[in-house]
């Protein structure tokens, strides 16, 4: 896992404020998500996690501040540049946000139809089936989203976000609405993304997800970043100011120690 200050930021927010419906949600949020790492941002309900993620992905235009992608201002991208940014990113919405008038295959295939139409319809459909199967979705491809459970919708949403093998994946609470088996499939996918050194930016309520995958852990409070750093830095720094998920992570102890225990146990098992 690459560490240190020399990391290149994939997405950087500088002093961003954002509002919705007359309410200020982000107030001076600054954070740099490093390239090739998995960053997890946690925070209480209503703290601005989802808005932070949408601003970072260019889905919400900030009132002030700047968002840069690979050094370029996201707000100043040309149409062509924005299209290539979209071709290399995927977004998982908190509430799935599947297109209701399009069947499951159509939902998952859309990023490929838009960015890689040269693949041909049959190859695109096969790619969509493969990623859905990997996530444990075994229902019909011709079904409409309304015919699925909320957990299945979430899996389809995740499949849609990664089918194009994007360099950056934004995930808004990817394991919400999922049963444990389905969540485990998502964890397997996250492990694969980490292995492929994709930039993964997750906002989540799940301390399990942060514990297992966060290379960088952030905490958002009152619309601004209260902490952002390596897992141990953040868990160590924020315990006085935060409760809930962070307190639970702190209670689990050092992740490095747990991993070394696990390695020892598995070695004992091998003997």
């Amino acid at each position: 896992m690459p560490e240190g200050d020399s990391l290149v930021p994939a997405i950087e927010l500088r002093d961003v404020t954002a509002s919705s419906g007359g309410f200020q949600i982000l107030s001076g949020a600054s954070v740099a998500f490093p390239e090739g790492l998995c960053s997890v941002v946690m925070g209480a309900a209503g703290s601005g996690k989802s808005t932070l993620l949408k601003v970072a992905a260019g889905l919400v235009v900030p009132d002030s501040g700047a968002v840069s992608v690979g050094g370029s201002d996201l707000a100043r991208l040309t149409r062509k540049e924005e299209l290539s940014f979209r071709a290399t990113t995927g977004f998982v919405f908190q509430d799935a946000a599947l297109w209701a008038d399009t069947n499951i295959l159509g939902n998952v295939a859309m990023p490929l139809r838009v960015h890689k139409p040269w693949m041909g319809e049959s190859t695109i459909a096969e790619a969509a089936r493969v990623v859905l199967h990997k996530l444990g979705y075994d229902e019909g491809m011709a079904l409409r989203p309304a015919e699925l459970s909320s957990g299945e919708q979430k899996l389809v949403s995740i499949a849609r976000a990664v089918v194009n093998d994007p360099a950056v994946v934004f995930m808004d609470d990817p394991t919400s609405n999922l049963d444990e088996d389905a969540a485990e499939k998502v964890y397997e996918l996250l492990a694969e993304l980490k292995q492929k050194r994709r930039t993964v930016i997750i906002v989540a309520n799940s301390s399990e997800l942060a514990y297992r995958f966060a290379d960088r852990l952030g905490v958002i409070k009152g619309g601004s970043m209260a902490a952002f750093g390596t897992y141990d830095e953040t868990v160590g720094r924020a315990e006085a100011a935060l409760s809930g998920s962070l307190a639970r992570l702190r209670a689990r102890g050092s992740r490095a120690a747990a991993r070394s225990d696990g390695a020892e146990n598995s070695q004992r098992g091998d003997v």
Binding site: A57, L83, R86, T89, G90, F93, A97, A100, R160
Partner: peptide, 17 residues
Amino acid sequence: GTMVVNHEIEAYIAVGL
């Protein structure tokens, strides 16, 4: 309007449409 409320419009933007 329904698509806006269900974030489907944002999903179109996210895939580059």
